Amino acid sequence: MYIMAKDIPAQTLDAVRQPIETANGLPNAHYISPDVFAVEKQAVLCANWAGLAVAADVPEPGDAKPIEFLGMPLLLVRDRQGRVRVFQNICRHRGMILVSEPKKIEGAIRCPYHSWCYSTDGKLVSTPHVGGPGHNTHDAIDKSLLGLIEVRSHIWFDTVFINIDGNADPFEEVHADLIARWSDFDQPMYHGGADSTFVLPVKTNWKLAVENYCESYHLPWVHPGLNSYSRLEDHYNIDEKGKFSGQGTYVYRQLKGDDGAVFPDFADLDDKWAEGGEYITVYPNVLVGVQRDHAFVIVLEPVSFEETREHIHLYYATPQTDDALRAKNTVQWRGIFEEDLFVVEGMQKGRYAPGFDGGRFSPAMDGPTHCFHDWVAGKIADHVARA
């Protein structure tokens, strides 16, 4: 039977929102039920600022990239003025998909069905034969009212965030504390290019990828190489309840090339970044990391309730970096992220155990994960109350 928002038991959400010492994690249905996932899409992913892509996906004016988000066909475009925008990827005439693969828009965005054309800023500019053969206008067709449907968007940390339902508070207000925390990195960042991005398909619910990323508790067993120099005891929790969470390290070791070369640092950083790094989840689905000489963005694409794609992008302080060192960095990060795959896929399988009640949290080590569970439960509870 289809689960409506009102059918999600309030007591299970209350149990998640208890203090960490007594709280349970989100119950199994939140990971293995397509019906609960349908509720979660509205309450968590569409009602908040979800990550869609990075602006570097459309680097030049006229670049367009079709993206599917929760089954919705969207189009990422950099318009002629250089602004990155998100539109529904459909013609306003008969709902035909406009762009089927990444491309450069040389003239206008042309529908392949009846050739209605749109500018890169979404305006309907041409409706050939709409009034009959040779008549390109009709009194009933007001082009000013039939532009592309734009999706509310905001760019921070080169990440394109979207608010599908259009009702979220402004991004700058929602994430004011995180923006202030990382104000040192409010400066140009340069995508490393084709060799600095990759996608990891994972058979897991998107939330488990967040939960694993948030905490450092698993380092000694899952990342022994990383833990050999950035040990568990060198890490600290970032627990900003209701806002964001993650982890940081006091021991960041710069990658060096065979000749001892390192990446250039970002400019004018506080001394704390000389040997430190932080790794934070921008709720709901964007994972970001900063170090003195490079940063990364991971956009989690929830494909289904048990399938996720991790889109990883690496950024640097200068537009040009050493090719070999950049490739080495990509290999290193890919290896670290791949070490996590068996964990998040194993937890997904574990959610089919009927006796599991969502688990318990270590008050000392699991604060970041509990913060995320509390935030998700709060958003669903608010949605349930409005249903």
Score class of each variant (00 low, 15 high):
L98P: 01
R80V: 01
C91R: 00
G95I: 08
M96G: 05
L76Y: 05
L98T: 06
A55W: 08
V58R: 00
V86T: 09
I90D: 00
E68N: 13
R80M: 06
A56W: 04
V77T: 08
L75K: 01
A55G: 12
L52D: 05
V86Q: 11
D79E: 14
E101S: 15
E68R: 10
F87K: 00
L76H: 03
R92D: 06
L75T: 04
N89H: 13
P73H: 13
F87D: 07
R83S: 12
P66Q: 09
E68H: 09
A53I: 02
I105L: 02
D57C: 11
G95E: 11
L76S: 06
R94T: 04
R83Q: 14
Q81V: 13
L52E: 07
G82L: 06
R78M: 07
V86P: 00
E60A: 12
A53Q: 01
V77E: 07
L98F: 08
I90V: 15
K103Y: 10
V77F: 07
V99S: 00
P61G: 07
K103A: 14
L76Q: 04
P102C: 14
R85L: 15
Q88C: 10
N89Q: 13
P61H: 06
G82C: 10
G82W: 09
G51Q: 02
L75G: 04
G107E: 10
I67M: 08
C91N: 06
P66C: 12
V77Q: 05
I90H: 08
V99M: 04
H93P: 10
P59E: 13
R85T: 12
R94I: 00
F69C: 02
P102T: 15
G82M: 09
E60K: 12
C91A: 10
S100R: 14
K65R: 15
G95Q: 08
V84I: 09
H93I: 04
L76F: 12
L75Y: 08
V86S: 03
P73M: 12
P66D: 14
A64H: 01
I105P: 02
V54E: 04
Q81Y: 13
G51A: 03
R92Y: 05
S100I: 11
F87M: 09
L98K: 00
K103E: 15
L98N: 04
E101M: 13
